[in-house]
Design a protein around this nucleic acid. Structure first.
Lengths: 346, 346
DNA sequence: ATTTAGCACTCAGTACCTTAGAGTGCTAAC
DNA sequence: GTTAGCACTCTAAGGTACTGAGTGCTAAAT
């Protein structure tokens, strides 16, 4: 177990290192006003902390640097209750004061403000299609064999796909199908659209439509891919300013990962609720082994809809990041829930 | 004027430098099989070429490096007629063989293949709204005071905006407006939608709608922003592998520029027709002063619709890049024109 | 009049050394 | 248990010497 003094010293050391990115020596710590004991004492304590694995040396006569275990301990036990400056709070509130209509914009703006406030890269996973429901479906012909299908969700989200129409399917067939769909599929969650359609509509369609088989394969191809949630970024290149990212290859690896939505999508699915911190090697992705990620969830009517995250070096301002993230997640939850309630069952 | 031999030497030098990224010395050139004269002769010629500004030294006893003037001369006068390897041609053709339905996908795939073939970053400016025309407009209510407006263009492009509805405007008013719009605005180019609406519809609307003023401001706000063309990328981080981009600050500047669609939009608007090359300082943007950009246009029915481009270091494989780009632009033009003709006036 | 061989010279890059400074671990005294 | 003191370690920065690639110039060869 760690003594009070060891805890104190560990905290000072990590705080200092987060600010300076330089290994911290015993003298640096002893010079602080609130430290009453000498550098020699600190040296002894540091040696103990190192033995326990909370800190490391970069070389045999260097100062100490927090290990990942050290950061983990710091995050779990040494953080005082979150406190945000008024400036930050105002910044965030002013964002939501605007009352933007489009969810996309709310989220894009949130990503922007997060990265501005922290100088890290912010990542937001857009609302899950999980809980959004179909409001209306439309098929608009483009030519004799193609048409655009438009799905409008109750959240205001619009999806569209271009589709080939088999020559054997007539326009009036399509109109019938659309009508039936709008009757039967309204308020069905987008995510279960395909299965519901196959179950509920099969019999009705067979009754009204001649070329049932063609229509069916056409519809199947239509819902083949469930579009994954969109990933939004703020300050994509902020992380390049951190001294730990001088190495171009690291940067390339990381930026490439950003481009792969499916991968990032998994990065952002939190394993537990609340604010979660993944430090260095705790991340599965190789590209992120030198990074830490703080994630928080946002909700609509109590249901988890997406995540917001901050990506920085392992030497990250965890405290501030967690506070800001928590605060913004909260505001986002309120805003989106308000918005959603005014739409629901309307 | 340059002598035959000077032209030859300049060409050899640039070709060599493009491959190696190392300053080229007289001995290196003299060692080539097709060079019959000695390194001393070459030294004299190099001194002349330097005096004329086509090549430079990196320091007083280094080999020579092409200057931007040198590259310009190379591009303008020293390139033999474009020749593509069969492999490249096949690669590109196989892309278009698929006959994808969605323009977006065609373009995204093109960007991908461009960057793969060249290892540079490819940038494509999506089709201009300029020539795409309105096929249909739809307004779908979301709640008592919001609705989604969906515009479908004849190209299959779908745009949507969420809109606030003033309380004084009734649902039946909106339905009337939509009907009128679909009657009057069909086949109007998206870009002139706003002006046409204001001109042609004012009188009709006044006749049929009670709250003409409210409806009018609502419609005005709707068409406030003409959505700019989308910018697509392939191999965004490819450029980081080039040795001239070791400097993180240069990289950051460039990547930040990529995020700013409006800026990139201007970069890609070509000044003249055909394949254009901008070398180093010829680019206006600071971030691109160390890059060269090769652009080509693609057309639909003879009308310029967008551009495709390759971004690399000034030490770029101009010849190959121009060939590949020209070839792909051509295929893109054919594919999109075919596609468009099957939609047109349908 | 060109071309070429030869040679002195220049400069970047590398290796190697030295020194300064920051930091540690250990010991002995407090 | 704490601290002062000291020997030791290692990095970073600066200086020197050496190597190799390359140049420019001159004088001889073609």
């Amino acid at each position: 177990m760690l003594t009070e003094r060891q805890l104190f010293i560990l905290q000072l050391l990590i705080n200092d290192y987060i600010q300076t990115a330089e290994p911290v020596g015993s003298r640096t710590i002893s010079k602080r006003e609130d430290v009453t004991f000498s550098s020699a004492t600190i040296r002894n304590e540091l040696a103990d902390l190192e033995e326990m694995g909370y800190i490391e040396k970069t070389h045999s006569s260097s100062g100490r640097v927090p290990s990942e275990k050290g950061y983990r301990f710091y995050v779990d036990h040494l953080l005082s209750p979150p406190l945000l400056s008024k400036k930050d709070v105002n910044n965030i509130h002013s964002l939501f004061a605007e009352r933007m209509v489009e969810v996309e914009k709310v989220i894009q703006q949130s990503a922007g403000i997060l990265s501005e406030l922290t100088q890290y890269t912010s990542i937001i996973l857009g609302p899950e299609v999980f809980e959004t429901r179909l409001r209306q479906i439309q098929i608009i012909p483009l030519s004799k064999d193609t048409a655009v299908v438009i799905l409008v969700a109750d959240s205001g989200h619009v999806e569209n796909r271009t589709m080939k129409i088999p020559p054997s399917v007539s326009m009036s067939d399509i109109e019938k199908v659309v009508n039936i769909m709008n009757e039967r599929l309204r308020d069905v969650p987008l995510i279960s659209l395909k299965s519901t359609m196959m179950k509920e509509m099969a019999t009705v369609l067979k009754k009204h439509i001649e070329n049932y088989n063609q229509v069916n394969t056409m519809l199947e191809s239509l819902f083949l891919y469930t579009n994954a949630e969109k990933v939004y970024y703020g300050g994509k290149t902020n992380i390049l300013t951190q001294p730990e990212f001088k190495d171009i290859d690291k940067v390339r690896l990381l930026l490439n990962t950003f481009e792969q939505d499916e991968v990032m999508y998994n990065v952002l699915r939190p394993e537990k609720n609340g604010i979660e911190v993944k430090i260095g090697q705790e991340n599965d992705l190789e590209a992120m082994q030198h990074c830490s990620i703080v994630t928080a969830d946002y909700f609509i009517e109590g249901k988890r809809m997406g995540s917001i995250a901050l990506l920085g070096p392992t030497r990250m301002e965890y405290h501030r990041s967690m506070s800001i993230l928590g605060f913004l997640a909260n505001d986002l939850t309120k805003t989106l829930t308000d918005r959603y309630q005014s739409f629901k069952h309307w």
